[in-house]
Write a protein that binds this DNA or RNA. Structure first.
Length: 485
RNA sequence: GGUCUCUUGGCCGAGUGGCUAGGCAGUGGUCUGCAAAACCAUCUACGGCGGUUCGAAUCCGCCAGAGACCUCCA
């Protein structure tokens, strides 16, 4: 487990050696989706990035409690006082119960992530299931003097908090700058100051999702659920909190303020933020039509990609970029990734067939150590992939008898190649097309073709090959015989 | 307007003060009846202008361009 893992901490802007609060255990919280529409590809990238973080922590021996919430109370669309709840709005438009909306999109979310081979979190709490905890947290914040009630709503007093704590420390903002940039649209605002944010909102009669509270009927503020649920399941302070870049401000900043004022301690030791994803160089946006859903990518039913892509290819493609970098989705890039992916998979099956000899012609231990070094350096999956391809080259060389591998090294390499590809990167191996009924048919067909080839009947053999190709089956001739795929 | 980040070869994308990232494409080769596939080898680089340094693509400054956040957003 002693791996000298380094994590880039958004709070300090530096890579820091990871030391868990409790030796051997890691608390990991990731901000989940608001389930009011289909999960989009950008969301998936964040969750896949943190899936790899979770997987690697486990791989190096930590016991991890991974918590990722489902936001099933819609955040408000507009400014606090004018806004509309996204889920409530959608429910009204579609004439459904809000919980029908939530249920439908939660299922979609789980389905998509499963296709991407994400491991489900250990706890997936919902905001509506933790209203009591949220109310208790609001009470605590008021008690500590950082929250105030106004007309049935409760707000967080940012300026008061800033007197004793640096509000803006995560996003590098200063309260003066924020103030000078605040848009003037209040008027009848219940807030004392424009930077204050809602902890609890008074609900109007038409509002669909609401609960009783000490301040009247209402619903929790947008930032509160994460604070309440992370505290409940991971404690007042925990190790890693992740999420997309776009949540840094104000969401995570508010979480720090809420946690610090309610619990007396900064809630998170290591903040991690994944970067955004673009489509053809531009931000994904539903309004401009520059957007693609995972299902559309898998089915090929979209205007952006030349063909359909397997979820594992998409995942592999994402692994070729660092989680803190932007990643641009283009047809060409996916196509290139698909070929690389196939090469890697091919090598993995070649590895199983390798024959060990007395010595290894290369330092396999060093090769494998590089896998760890890559991931220990702030989960650098792209460097890991590069290192895996170094191993691929070696595997192929052994297969071509231009390199050798010892029995022990072969065992080590097999274990670690599979470990890093399957367990860490989360690339599930393709179930080879061993269709029970097709396989014997193919054996027969290829046998006939081989007969034709032996008889130098090229017309027949090529006809079989072309016919199969038309059916999407690629025939591969090699020294060992003919295979198909 | 404010805060911050980024700018790498035909494409995607790591990384680093002096030593090959990697993948895809291209080129050459091995294999093959011919192909395909596979494998091997190999070319093209660090936005512009200054500065620091023995040496910078890597550090600093300026300029240009892109993006994120400032308002719900992974």
């Amino acid at each position: 487990m002693k791996q000298n893992l380094n994590i880039y901490n958004s709070l300090t802007g530096k890579k820091e050696e990871f030391t868990p609060l409790n030796d051997g255990f890691v608390g990991l919280y990731v901000c989940g989706p608001t389930v009011y529409s289909n999960v989009h590809l950008g969301n998936c990238r964040t969750f896949i990035s943190f899936d790899v973080v979770y997987r690697y922590l486990k791989y190096i021996g930590y016991k991890v409690r991974y918590v990722r919430n489902i936001t099933d109370v819609g955040h408000l669309v507009d400014d606090a006082d004018e806004g509309e709840d996204k889920i409530a709005k959608k429910a009204r438009l579609e004439q459904l119960e809000p919980m029908e909306i939530v249920q439908a999109y939660t299922i979609d979310f789980h389905n998509v992530l499963q296709k991407f081979n994400n491991i489900p979190p250990n706890i997936e709490p919902t905001a509506t299931g933790h209203i009591i905890e949220q109310i208790e947290m609001v009470k605590a914040i008021i008690e500590k003097g950082f929250g105030y009630e106004s007309n049935g709503s409760v707000y967080f007093d940012v300026e008061k908090y800033n007197e004793s704590h640096p509000y803006g420390e995560l996003s590098g903002r200063k309260i003066e700058d924020l103030l000078s940039n605040t848009r003037d649209l209040d008027g009848q605002s219940e807030k004392r100051a424009p930077l204050d944010f809602a902890l609890w909102k008074n609900a109007s009669d038409e509002h669909l999702m609401k609960w009783p509270s000490p301040w009247g009927i209402g619903f929790p503020g947008w930032h509160l659920e994460c604070s309440a649920m992370s505290t409940k399941y991971l404690g007042k302070q925990f190790d890693i909190h992740g999420g997309g870049m776009d949540l840094k401000f104000p969401h995570h900043e508010c979480e720090i303020a809420q946690g610090t004022s309610a619990n007396g301690t900064s809630p998170v030791k290591y903040w991690m933020h994944g970067n955004m994803l673009t489509l053809n160089g531009k931000k994904m946006s539903k309004s401009t039509g520059n957007s693609i859903l995972p299902e559309e990518l898998f089915s090929g039913d979209n205007d952006f990609m030349e063909k359909a892509f397997d979820p594992m290819v998409v995942r592999f493609f994402m692994m070729q970029a660092h989680y803190r970098s932007n990643l641009d989705f283009t047809s060409d890039a996916l196509l290139a990734a698909e070929k690389g992916f196939n090469k890697l998979m091919e090598a993995l099956s070649t590895l199983e067939k390798l024959k060990a000899t007395k010595d290894s012609s290369t330092d396999v231990t060093a090769l494998v150590n590089e896998f760890h070094n890559a991931m220990n350096d702030d989960f650098n999956a792209p460097t890991l992939v590069a290192n895996l391809f170094e191993a691929v080259k070696f595997i192929n060389s052994v297969n071509d008898n231009t390199a050798t591998i010892s029995k022990d090294d072969l065992a080590l390499l097999t274990k670690e190649m599979n470990g890093f590809i399957v367990d860490v990167l989360g690339i599930s191996l393709q179930i080879s097309s061993s269709d029970d009924k097709l396989a014997p048919v193919m054996d027969l067909v290829l046998d006939l073709r081989q007969e034709a080839r032996t008889n130098k009947d090229w017309t027949t053999s090529d006809k079989i090959r072309d016919g199969l190709a038309a059916a999407g089956i690629v025939v591969k001739d090699s020294k060992e015989g003919t295979s198909w795929k």
